[in-house]
Amino acid sequence: MSKYTTGEIAKLCGVTVRTVQYYDKRGILVPSELSEGGRRLYSEDDVKRLRVICFLRGLGFNIDSISKLTSEDDPGSVIMLLLEQQEQTLTAELNECSDRLAKIKQMKRELKDIENFSVESIGDIAHTMTGKKELRKIHRNILLSAVPVTLLQIATVVLWLTVGIWWPFVIWAVIDVVYGVIISRYYFNSVAYICPQCHTVFVPKVREALFANHTPSTRKLTCSSCGHCGFCVEVARPKDNT
């Protein structure tokens, strides 16, 4: 039966001598015998074992898991559990990398729209990206509440026009005004704005914000910090400003 030195088994399995020595030190690849001169000698079974170790390391298993697996008399009872644990770990890492990649792509898109780039611009984008999920939640809540209100309002109009019963429309018009006040207060109590001049996150007065010219993501306001008047980016209001 063939015997291999540390350097020979390392070359056969495509690893470094230091790696073989490390596995020996950790007790997962102990040489079959020692030569008269004290050299470590590995057998064909050791070569197979090292290849298995390299394969498992390639799947991301740590040394402790490999040690546990290779020391089992019945490794089949352990491998499935270890594979499931590794799958969960890799899935979590993949999701984290995907989230980072999405943020990088979004940052690149945001930077393309900035004419006068500065370090503060990164802070503005980061603040916007961080609160985007919360901002979508605010918009979704408003939309979900507005749909039934609108449908009922349309129903009262149809009832008036087709049957001539007008009083439900009048009652619902009053309710609609109350709803408008409540939902407006909810909205403006949930958002804030970033000044493009001084990069301060500020909360405008409700009256000013209500009647200000706006786009889906900006509103023309006067910054409460520097007094700049212009279109400010809408973000979810920070927790400390609620």
Rank of each mutant, 00 (worst) to 15 (best):
V158D: 04
I154L: 14
R219L: 09
F202I: 00
Q153S: 04
V177F: 12
G58S: 13
G76M: 07
N116Y: 08
E134K: 03
R39V: 03
V191P: 01
F188H: 12
G7A: 13
L83H: 10
L50D: 06
Y186C: 00
S35D: 06
A10W: 14
T130W: 05
D74P: 03
L41I: 11
M80I: 14
F231H: 10
T215P: 00
R39A: 03
E120C: 05
N189R: 08
N241M: 14
S184I: 03
Q153R: 01
D113G: 00
I183H: 07
L81D: 13
G14M: 12
P216H: 11
L29G: 05
L143E: 08
T70W: 07
E84H: 07
S190V: 03
T91F: 09
K103P: 00
Y193L: 05
I175A: 01
K105A: 00
V178L: 15
Y4S: 10
T222Q: 15
I125F: 01
S190F: 02
V20C: 01
E96C: 03
K108Q: 13
K220L: 09
K133A: 08
A10R: 14
V47S: 05
K25F: 04
V147R: 06
V203F: 06
G230F: 04
S67V: 04
N241E: 14
S145R: 14
Q21F: 12
Q88Y: 12
Y23M: 01
E33T: 12
I183G: 03
K239Y: 11
C229P: 00
I9H: 10
I63G: 02
S224C: 05
D74W: 09
I175C: 02
I171C: 05
L135T: 07
V174W: 08
E36R: 09
S32L: 08
T6F: 15
N213K: 15
R185Q: 11
A212L: 04
Q86D: 00
V149Y: 08
Y42I: 14
